[in-house]
Design a protein around this nucleic acid. Structure first.
Lengths: 212, 212, 212, 212
DNA sequence: AATGAATGAGGCTTCATTCAT
DNA sequence: CATGAATGAAGCCTCATTCAT
């Protein structure tokens, strides 16, 4: 939804924006250090370098700091994923390979960020927020797959994208959480490509299900 | 003599066992309702229908209630999964199909329990506990795969089992969390079989990696 | 204090007596190990080797265990002091010397017991109990002094005895509490004899005061 | 960076000082009313007229409230005693007389404060704290005695001061606790002077002992 | 706009006491 | 007589939030 005119925003502008960002960054740092429930408002304020009351000028309460921060942070990650998936892959098969390739590129390029994503994801309490974020990522994948040369015309890309993203995301999550380190890339990537291509091909051979 | 007397003895016998179970059940209920960090000792006591101090006769602190309960609960679930996977499958390929088959059997047979498991999994804060539980399930799968007729002799089944379980588990989790319902079984099962067989086959074609 | 018919029947006979003594001994042990407020009913029961409920067959509550125990225990100590003070001293001066001599004999003979006494004394909450116990000791000294050959006829021995006992007792207490050990006996005894003889002589030279 | 942000800063300035004093005063009041172990944080907060959490802005825990308060309170009392003992006494004998004189001056001038001190002393559970406080008073006396014109050069004043203070202090304590009133001053002072001068003279005639 | 001192509800845990066995 | 499992009031402390400056 783009508007032709950029509406004039608040006069306070960039200073206010910076403070809000500083708070959100502080939240992410605390989150990764201590885990969601252990993050205290005081920690955030200290790390952000602002007063305690200042937080409440920007956010009505602790929960909203989390919500806003997570949303912004995930949008950012999704955008990066989207950008890195812009290669002109052709077949669905190739798209899958490229998807895994680019996904792992991103993961290995910024493991910290993805570890954070995984941590975050498991901390989110509000199911609606969780669904929003998940759906956003799936849509990025869906657009990617749908633009494949041999994509069945009229086929809803969402369920397949859901499967593909679910496999990818969970593989990374479980690796980070359970193994606590990323596996050797070469072999791992092959396995994932096998799994995703296998799943996607099977999915496309099946007639479209009714219930989502 | 100075420190000998400070023991608080656990009660014994069957009455005691019932109380302990009641507490653990109450913990699971609270956990699913409110999320791990929000579970209060008082809630558990109320739901279990016992006095506040009684909890401390059975568990030394809140944390241990969680640990014991979760472990017992997951062992139970894993045992069921294990039992349902005892079919005499032959090839690895068939084992994978059977695995998905039985897993989904279990999931569709008791969706509530699995929804609880999924919720639980995301609530657990302690990484060590998370890893324990995850590893337990993976081992069940590993034993299953390793007994396949064409399993490569001497090959460590753990990494492959990890992949397989990760795919299965995440597919169920994401379906329950994001779609909030289980997909139509027939098509879903095909997709999962494709994904898992694909992943496992790829994995076995790759030479064994060094770092786990 | 409240109702006379609050009777929970006490057990009887020698078995009962032994149990009561075991409880009281356990109380003293706990008291010396942990300090009054840290003594728990459970500790006492464990040390005494009786059940938790059994305590309440012999004592209505924790406080009364303390009160009864302390009274019995102090009576015992006073009796020993009294016995050791039976020497046939002649002048008041000699009586004082003998008093210090016997007092320190007792203190050095059983320093543990006196350390306990000191600890106890400072723990006693009820002022009435404190006064009772103190008065009892003073009376022992009073009888001793009054039987001196040159004791002024008709002079109330209580105030002087009070002074003497106060000096003696506090010297021991402060040594045990602050120095945490008994000083070298020879010199210490001389000092105390000097102080007490000095105080007593001064007191007897002064005309009898009115108030106390 | 990980542990840098966890500081809770103490408030500053005069307002803060007033609040801290209010808390300490409330602690003393509670202490005298209920005894050390019975003092509850809530009591202190209520009496001080501040919120519960406010206490924790000024003191990290209950124990530290006690420690700081008692130390400050005793320093105050000791300072007064010190000041009143600044007379240019000459011989040790005269010093002793002056000491008793000024001590009783102080006691009779503010009996309430000394009753509090006595009560306090018996309430203190922590032996270390007790020793600190006692030692502080003894040092005041030691300085006083050491400056006497005929003080034996090189003689350690501490043991003698200990004896003197012990006698003085216990006489007052026992009078307040057991007699529950101060005796008639004239006679009492004579007795105490006799006792203390006697003890001190004896002590100085004895060669310096080895162990304290 | 920014601050941080003050607040108090609420969390965990202990322990004296009761009562059914 | 004896027991000890069960109880819950009460204690200490944390931390999100407010409001006067």
């Amino acid at each position: 939804m783009s508007s032709a005119h950029k509406t004039r925003r608040k006069p306070s502008q960039s200073r206010a924006w910076m403070t809000s960002i500083a708070i959100q960054d502080a939240f992410v740092i605390s989150l990764l250090e201590r885990g969601y429930e252990q993050v205290s408002i005081r920690d955030i304020a200290n790390i952000a370098g602002v007063g305690l009351g200042t937080l409440y000028l920007y956010f009505p309460n602790k929960e909203s700091i989390a919500a806003v921060t997570i949303r912004r942070w995930l949008r950012h990650l999704a955008r990066e994923l989207e950008r890195s998936g812009k290669a002109e892959g052709q077949s669905v098969q190739q798209r899958c390979h490229a998807l895994v390739q680019h996904y792992l590129d991103d993961v290995f390029a910024k493991p910290k960020a993805w570890q954070a994503l995984v941590t975050l994801e498991r901390r989110i309490t509000d199911p609606e927020l969780y669904r929003q974020m998940y759906t956003h990522f799936v849509e990025v994948v869906a657009v990617n797959l749908q633009s494949a040369s041999d994509w069945p015309v009229g086929r809803d890309p969402f369920p397949v994208a859901f499967l593909a993203f679910s496999l990818l995301c969970s593989a990374v999550r479980d690796a980070l959480l359970v193994l606590q380190t990323l596996p050797q890339r070469a072999g791992w990537q092959l396995q994932l490509e096998g799994a995703i291509a296998g799943g996607v091909v099977c999915a496309l051979q099946t007639p479209e299900p009714d219930c989502p």
